[in-house]
Lab assay of single mutants.
Amino acid sequence: KKYKVVEVKENKDGTVELVVENENGEKKKITLSKEELDKLKAGDTVELK
């Protein structure tokens, strides 16, 4: 499934919390490390299994 990044929030521990949404409007929260996030920004599309 493809999800669009709608919100990006940095946590104090250096991880980043993303809120992503698919075309049905379903939202998910995922947490990434700073390194994983470096290639993402709001409006990008991510694929989740």
Score class of each variant (00 low, 15 high):
residue 1 K to W: 01
residue 31 T to E: 05
residue 49 K to W: 00
residue 49 K to D: 15
residue 4 K to H: 07
residue 5 V to I: 14
residue 1 K to L: 10
residue 7 E to F: 05
residue 14 G to I: 00
residue 7 E to R: 02
residue 29 K to V: 13
residue 17 E to A: 07
residue 26 E to F: 09
residue 9 K to M: 10
residue 27 K to W: 08
residue 31 T to M: 10
residue 15 T to Y: 11
residue 10 E to N: 09
residue 15 T to R: 03
residue 23 E to H: 06
residue 29 K to P: 02
residue 3 Y to F: 09
residue 36 E to A: 09
residue 25 G to Q: 03
residue 5 V to M: 02
residue 31 T to Y: 09
residue 9 K to Y: 10
residue 6 V to M: 07
residue 28 K to M: 14
residue 31 T to K: 09
residue 10 E to L: 07
residue 3 Y to H: 10
residue 4 K to E: 05
residue 38 D to S: 09
residue 25 G to K: 04
residue 9 K to S: 09
residue 5 V to G: 01
residue 13 D to T: 02
residue 41 K to G: 07
residue 4 K to V: 14
residue 38 D to T: 11
residue 16 V to Y: 13
residue 27 K to D: 02
residue 34 K to F: 11
residue 20 V to Q: 00
residue 35 E to F: 07
residue 10 E to R: 03
residue 16 V to S: 05
residue 36 E to V: 08
residue 48 L to K: 13
residue 22 N to V: 08
residue 11 N to Y: 07
residue 1 K to Q: 12
residue 38 D to C: 13
residue 18 L to E: 00
residue 8 V to N: 00
residue 38 D to M: 08
residue 5 V to L: 04
residue 20 V to R: 00
residue 26 E to P: 01
residue 43 G to R: 02
residue 22 N to D: 14
residue 42 A to W: 03
residue 25 G to F: 04
residue 25 G to C: 07
residue 4 K to A: 06
residue 46 V to H: 05
residue 34 K to D: 07
residue 39 K to E: 15
residue 23 E to R: 03
residue 4 K to Q: 08
residue 34 K to S: 14
residue 27 K to N: 03
residue 10 E to P: 06
residue 38 D to R: 05
residue 4 K to T: 10
residue 23 E to V: 08
residue 6 V to N: 03
residue 14 G to W: 01
residue 16 V to G: 08
residue 9 K to T: 11
residue 46 V to F: 02
residue 20 V to C: 10
residue 48 L to T: 13
residue 33 S to M: 14
residue 12 K to E: 09
residue 40 L to A: 11
residue 44 D to W: 00
residue 42 A to T: 08
residue 42 A to H: 06
residue 40 L to Y: 14
residue 39 K to N: 15
residue 25 G to E: 01
residue 2 K to R: 09
residue 10 E to D: 13
residue 49 K to S: 15
residue 23 E to T: 08
residue 17 E to T: 09
residue 34 K to G: 15
residue 18 L to Q: 00
residue 43 G to V: 04
residue 9 K to F: 11
residue 20 V to T: 03
residue 43 G to W: 03
residue 25 G to H: 05
residue 23 E to G: 04
residue 8 V to G: 01
residue 33 S to P: 14
residue 26 E to G: 05
residue 18 L to D: 00
residue 24 N to Q: 12
residue 5 V to R: 00
residue 26 E to I: 11
residue 26 E to C: 15
residue 16 V to Q: 03
residue 39 K to I: 10
residue 28 K to H: 15
residue 17 E to L: 09
residue 4 K to G: 02
residue 16 V to A: 11
residue 6 V to R: 02
residue 11 N to A: 07
residue 18 L to H: 00
residue 4 K to D: 04
residue 24 N to M: 14
residue 26 E to K: 05
residue 8 V to T: 06
residue 11 N to I: 05
residue 8 V to D: 00
residue 26 E to M: 08
residue 36 E to F: 11
residue 46 V to L: 13
residue 6 V to A: 02
residue 28 K to V: 14
residue 32 L to V: 11
residue 32 L to D: 00
residue 5 V to W: 02
residue 2 K to S: 05
residue 35 E to Q: 11
residue 30 I to E: 00
residue 23 E to P: 05
residue 13 D to F: 03
residue 38 D to W: 01
residue 14 G to S: 02
residue 9 K to P: 00
residue 15 T to M: 08
residue 35 E to D: 14
residue 48 L to H: 12
residue 12 K to I: 13
residue 33 S to C: 15
residue 33 S to H: 13
residue 16 V to D: 00
residue 11 N to T: 09
residue 39 K to C: 11
residue 27 K to P: 04
residue 39 K to G: 15
residue 39 K to S: 10
residue 4 K to L: 14
residue 1 K to Y: 02
residue 21 E to A: 07
residue 5 V to A: 01
residue 47 E to A: 01
residue 41 K to R: 11
residue 9 K to E: 03
residue 2 K to F: 11
residue 1 K to G: 13
residue 31 T to W: 13
residue 47 E to C: 08
residue 5 V to D: 01
residue 26 E to R: 05
residue 37 L to E: 03
residue 47 E to Q: 06
residue 29 K to G: 06
residue 43 G to K: 02
residue 24 N to R: 11
residue 6 V to T: 05
residue 24 N to A: 14
residue 45 T to G: 02
residue 2 K to G: 04
residue 5 V to Y: 02
residue 18 L to C: 09
residue 41 K to W: 07
residue 46 V to S: 03
residue 38 D to G: 15
residue 28 K to N: 09
residue 38 D to Q: 06
residue 48 L to P: 14
residue 10 E to T: 08
residue 2 K to I: 11
residue 7 E to V: 10
residue 46 V to W: 00
residue 28 K to D: 07
residue 31 T to C: 14
residue 31 T to R: 08
residue 16 V to F: 11
residue 44 D to N: 06
residue 23 E to Y: 05
residue 41 K to T: 09
residue 16 V to R: 07
residue 6 V to I: 13
residue 7 E to K: 03
residue 10 E to G: 04
residue 41 K to Y: 06
residue 21 E to L: 10
residue 28 K to E: 11
residue 45 T to R: 01
residue 48 L to C: 15
residue 26 E to W: 03
residue 47 E to K: 04
residue 34 K to W: 12
residue 13 D to E: 03
residue 5 V to S: 00
residue 2 K to Q: 08
residue 45 T to D: 15
residue 38 D to Y: 02
residue 24 N to Y: 11
residue 42 A to M: 11
residue 25 G to P: 00
residue 23 E to A: 07
residue 19 V to F: 06
residue 46 V to G: 11
residue 22 N to H: 09
residue 7 E to P: 00
residue 19 V to A: 03
residue 24 N to E: 13
residue 13 D to K: 01
residue 13 D to W: 03
residue 46 V to I: 15
residue 45 T to I: 10
residue 10 E to V: 07
residue 19 V to L: 12
residue 48 L to A: 13
residue 37 L to W: 12
residue 29 K to Q: 11
residue 26 E to V: 09
residue 39 K to Y: 08
residue 40 L to D: 01
residue 34 K to R: 12
residue 24 N to F: 14
residue 36 E to G: 15
residue 35 E to K: 11
residue 45 T to M: 07
residue 1 K to E: 14
residue 1 K to D: 11
residue 25 G to M: 04
residue 14 G to T: 01
residue 36 E to N: 13
residue 49 K to F: 00
residue 29 K to C: 14
residue 4 K to F: 10
residue 28 K to A: 08
residue 21 E to G: 01
residue 17 E to K: 02
residue 37 L to K: 15
residue 16 V to C: 10
residue 44 D to H: 04
residue 27 K to Q: 13
residue 25 G to Y: 03
residue 33 S to Q: 14
residue 14 G to M: 02
residue 31 T to F: 11
residue 37 L to M: 12
residue 41 K to S: 08
residue 35 E to I: 11
residue 37 L to C: 15
residue 26 E to L: 07
residue 29 K to T: 13
residue 29 K to M: 14
residue 8 V to Q: 04
residue 12 K to L: 13
residue 3 Y to W: 09
residue 42 A to I: 15
residue 45 T to F: 14
residue 46 V to A: 01
residue 27 K to T: 13
residue 48 L to R: 10
residue 46 V to P: 11
residue 9 K to G: 05
residue 30 I to N: 00
residue 21 E to I: 09
residue 39 K to L: 11
residue 28 K to Y: 12
residue 43 G to Y: 02
residue 47 E to T: 02
residue 47 E to P: 01
residue 41 K to A: 11
residue 16 V to L: 08
residue 39 K to V: 08
residue 38 D to K: 07
residue 29 K to Y: 13
residue 18 L to S: 00
residue 47 E to H: 13
residue 13 D to V: 01
residue 8 V to R: 03
residue 10 E to W: 08
residue 24 N to I: 09
residue 14 G to A: 01
residue 16 V to W: 14
residue 9 K to D: 02
residue 33 S to Y: 08
residue 7 E to T: 11
residue 2 K to A: 05
residue 45 T to H: 05
residue 3 Y to R: 04
residue 32 L to K: 03
residue 13 D to M: 02
residue 27 K to L: 10
residue 12 K to A: 09
residue 16 V to M: 12
